[in-house]
Computed example of a mutant assay.
Amino acid sequence: MPKFVITGASGGGKSTLIKSLSAAGYTCAPEAGRQIVAEQLASNGTALPWADKAAFMNLLFARSIAAFDQIAETAGQSVFFDRSFIEAIAYGEVIGRQPPRFMLEAVAERRFDNPVFVCPPWEAIFARDAERRHDFNFAIRDYEANLAAYSAAGYDLLEIPRASIAERRAFVINMLG
């Protein structure tokens, strides 16, 4: 079963694209980071990217690995992930924290198919909200770290054009062959 990841900048349209692919019948895994932030806010937890950054990184990694491992085999249909455990490695770079050896080993053991689809920074659609408190400049730093982490893990990166959601979905589907 082909497994693809959609990465890129915060507020670059990844989640909207994932929802569109899901509506088109593809199996999709939602972004773990937003789920974690929502849960932590609801429970007064501290594993937040603006509070306990290391705890957030560790929880992000664990949740993303679990999502990868739990995707059921489908009849050869492509599966799309809204970000992945590699984002936790990239986040570690942004906050100045080296990933533990077990994280690097897990990245080597679990592989996505190429290409990794990339939503570039897009200031016109970037918006802050209760779960995304950082500014556009941080989104760019995070984006650059994500690209570096995926490249270091041996993935080919393919930028998705800034276009309507229908055009972006068609672009991704057409790239699948």
Rank of each mutant, 00 (worst) to 15 (best):
T7Q: 03
I18K: 00
A127N: 05
A88M: 05
Y155F: 05
A42C: 06
D142V: 08
G92E: 13
R83C: 08
M57K: 10
A148V: 05
L157H: 09
R83G: 09
G25Q: 14
D135E: 14
S151Q: 15
I18S: 00
D69R: 14
A148H: 02
A54T: 11
A75F: 09
S151Y: 06
D113V: 03
H134W: 14
S10N: 09
I65D: 04
Y150W: 11
R169C: 02
F81A: 03
G33Q: 01
F80D: 08
G11H: 00
G25K: 15
F117K: 00
Q70H: 07
F126N: 00
I125E: 04
L176Q: 09
D135V: 00
F68G: 02
C28K: 04
K19R: 04
D82S: 05
I71V: 12
T74P: 00
C119W: 01
A153N: 10
R132A: 04
N137Y: 07
V5T: 07
P120T: 05
V94A: 15
F126Y: 12
F68P: 02
A9I: 01
L176H: 04
V116F: 01
A145V: 06
Y150H: 12
A152R: 08
N174M: 15
G92F: 12
V107S: 13
V118F: 06
I6M: 04
I160D: 03
S22I: 01
P120Q: 09
A139C: 07
A166W: 01
S20D: 09
R132G: 08
V116S: 03
A62S: 07
Y26P: 01
A24L: 14
P49M: 08
A148R: 06
A67T: 05
E123R: 09
L104F: 10
F126M: 12
E144D: 14
A62E: 09
V172H: 02
R128V: 12
W122F: 07
R141C: 09
S10I: 05
N146G: 05
I95Q: 13
M1V: 08
N174C: 11
R169I: 03
Y150P: 02
A72N: 13
K3P: 13
W122A: 11
N146E: 11
F81Y: 11
L59C: 10
A32Y: 13
C28S: 10
L60G: 04
A149R: 03
A24R: 14
A139N: 06
N58W: 12
F56C: 06
I95W: 05
G177E: 15
Q35K: 02
N58M: 07
A55K: 12
I140N: 15
